[in-house]
């Protein structure tokens, strides 16, 4: 058998089971690919699940046009290198209205460029199941979500009416127009993800590793100046600091941490002594009370 520690092996097998079950039972699955570490792990697990066959579903990236440039580069390289069927979707209407995270606030911007965009793409392609990389350790409302999470025709989640999940017997049946969000990494923690990346030698976006990068301090957060669209206030100073990211998203909404971790092993070590959770760097989690639950009910991943 492979070299993995017992607990990772069990998590790996669970995720593979989930991938296969969806492909066996659903009509048209897709994998939501957000380019981050969780997506990299999901992609790796999916390839293992169906080896030696190619992935039996496409990948979908919701591009807000505000992702880090390194992420887009990594996405295209990965798709090229593994011969993936990658769909990139942008909410054109939102783009034409000029919706952006700087002027419109994170809640409105996320609603249009992420949630609406996702719903558009899922509806347009008629996907009935979408894999997502969410983990139960990330956020409180996630800890209550099932592995198979059902969405109405309008992509709405009803947390009070979830299907019981017994053993590993998943009920994948849906009515026409309904869809399922499926989370193969539900039982993983952030540290599991990094330990797995280490053991399996999985490539991730370089932004996870510390390097000197231009940043400004804003409201206690370090925001990277990834391109010229980020306005720099008169009293703000762009500094070159050794930083890395624990989580990746739209660059103006994603805070960096100061770090010297330049390898996966460094990151694992850093996490073992970390005192804050990864989502502290995600500014959108804090923009409303019960923020994530509300976004999820409306259709956000």
């Amino acid at each position: 058998m492979n070299h993995l520690p017992d607990d990772l092996r069990r998590l790996e097998a669970e995720a593979i089971f989930i991938f296969r079950e969806v492909v066996a039972e659903c009509r048209k699955p897709v994998m939501l690919y957000s380019i981050g570490k969780d997506s990299s792990v999901m992609l790796h697990l999916a390839r293992k699940a169906f080896h030696p066959a190619n992935l039996p579903f496409p990948l979908l990236h919701i591009d807000t046009t505000w992702k880090f440039r390194d992420m887009i580069r990594f996405r295209d390289e990965t798709a090229e290198c593994l011969g993936l069927d990658l769909i990139v979707h942008v909410n054109r209407a939102g783009l034409e209205q000029g919706i952006n995270p700087i002027q419109h606030g994170s809640a409105a911007y996320t609603g249009v460029m992420k949630t609406d965009a996702l719903k558009q793409a899922l509806t347009a392609h008629g996907f009935d199941a979408a894999f997502g990389g969410a983990r139960r350790d990330e956020e409180l409302s996630r800890s209550k979500e099932r592995v198979f999470s059902f969405r109405s025709k309008n992509h709405v989640w009803d947390p009070r009416n979830q299907r019981p999940e017994l053993w590993n017997v998943f009920n994948c049946r849906i009515a026409p127009g309904e869809s399922i969000r499926v989370f193969p990494l539900s039982n993983w923690t952030e540290l599991d993800v990094w330990r797995y990346i280490e053991h399996e030698n999985i490539r991730v976006v370089p932004l996870y590793f510390a390097a000197r990068r231009p940043v400004v301090r804003r409201g206690g957060n370090l925001i990277m100046v990834d391109d010229a669209r980020l306005p720099i206030g008169a009293d703000e100073v762009v500094q070159n600091l050794a930083i890395r990211f624990r989580t990746l998203g739209c660059y103006p909404l994603t805070a960096a941490i100061e770090s010297s971790a330049v390898t996966v092993i460094d990151i694992v070590r850093e996490l073992e002594t970390a005192s804050t959770s990864e989502r502290e760097g995600r500014l959108i989690d804090f923009d409303q009370t019960g923020s994530m639950e509300r976004k999820k009910r409306e259709g956000y991943f």
Binding site: E139, L140, S141, R142, S143, E293
Partner: peptide, 21 residues
Amino acid sequence: LLDGLQAEREQGITIDVGYHH
């Protein structure tokens, strides 16, 4: 720490299964 859904916090009960590590 555990009652993650808004309704649970407000009513002080646990509605669904939560998984914690």
